[in-house]
């Protein structure tokens, strides 16, 4: 009896705590949006109230002060290129790991799994040396070839699991028909593992677009190279900490991520459902 009482009394507490935390998460987002239209005085005096005007001057300011337009292009270029390179490396490798039965394959898989435990930050300094050595330091090219390396462990392991789920009789019959490995990969595996490919593409997009420290050090401060994540914090000194402009800039950098997430999440869910129905 007493236990039932505890449960009932604990319920409002649980609801309360969960939603209190949700409120803490939503507050900064709300705060960004309303503050992007306010000046410093209004942000301090009434942090919660909606803005009195909807002037876009802060957004224009943010764009001009740190050349956000160029930075957005750099981020897009780097993210898309690195994404394509990651898929080009991960798809054949996953297929190979899923279908070979040798000891080398098992060893390779463990080698990639080890990557989960390696925080990429640990190797930042030697990576800079590598970039200097290749004469690619502070270029977009180096970021494009470097970022996939960090994304490979997850991409390969995840995709290998998707590829394994495909029955091998499908492949055996294609082999009987005289199809080569590459054709089998492109014609059978690629379409069937699309849900997996979309999943890793989304995860990689998030991590490439949002990368900060490596983009800062390997890309550097040159406006011709720097990404939005590197350009954004420059607003602090450029505007003499005008928070409205700062937050307008932050909002601009977040829009692409939210757009892609909203657009692709639906596709990912339906794709995953299809995959589940088929198997």
């Amino acid at each position: 009896m007493a236990k039932k009482g505890i449960r009932d009394r604990a319920a409002p507490l649980a609801h309360g705590l969960a939603w209190f935390y949700a409120l803490l998460l939503v507050f900064p987002l709300y705060f960004i949006i309303v503050s992007a239209f306010k000046d410093n005085l209004a942000i301090f005096n009434s942090p919660l109230s909606p803005p009195s005007s909807l002037s876009v001057s802060h957004f224009v300011d943010a764009f001009q002060r740190v050349e956000l337009g160029r930075a957005l292009w750099n981020s897009t270029f780097i993210t898309v290129s690195a994404e394509l390179l990651t898929l080009a490396l991960a798809i054949p490798a996953s297929y190979a790991l899923a279908r070979s039965r040798g000891r080398i394959a098992a060893w390779c898989e463990r080698f990639f799994a080890l990557g989960f435990l390696i925080p990429s930050f640990a190797a930042l300094v030697p990576t800079v040396l590598l970039a200097i050595h290749l004469q690619l330091f502070q270029t977009r090219a180096f970021l494009i070839i470097f970022l996939p390396a960090g994304a490979l462990p997850l991409s390969v392991i995840l995709l290998t699991q998707f590829m394994r789920a495909i029955p091998s009789d499908l492949e055996e019959s294609a082999v009987m028909d005289g199809a080569g490995r590459i054709r089998i990969l492109l014609r059978i595996y690629l379409p069937l593992t699309m849900p997996g490919i979309i999943t890793i593409a989304i995860l990689n997009f998030l991590s490439f677009w949002n990368e900060y420290l490596f983009a800062l050090i390997l890309g550097g401060p040159d406006p011709a190279v720097r990404t939005v994540q590197v350009a954004l914090p420059n607003l602090v000194s450029q505007t003499n900490t005008e928070y409205g402009v700062l937050l307008a800039g932050a909002l601009i950098t977040m829009i692409p991520v939210y757009l892609v997430y909203i657009l692709l999440q639906r596709r990912m869910e339906s794709a995953l459902l299809e995959g589940a129905v088929k198997s």
């Binding site: 490396l89 991960a90 190979a96 080698f111 190797a123 300094v125 590598l130």
Partner: peptide, 24 residues
């Protein structure tokens, strides 16, 4: 052929992740 397909990814990971880590 399977080994050949896996090689680029393994090399990439070795050169840009494991190598630098060892250099530390």
């Amino acid at each position: 052929l399977l080994v050949l397909l896996a090689t680029p990814a393994v090399l990439w990971y070795a050169v840009f992740t494991i190598g630098p880590l060892g250099a530390v």
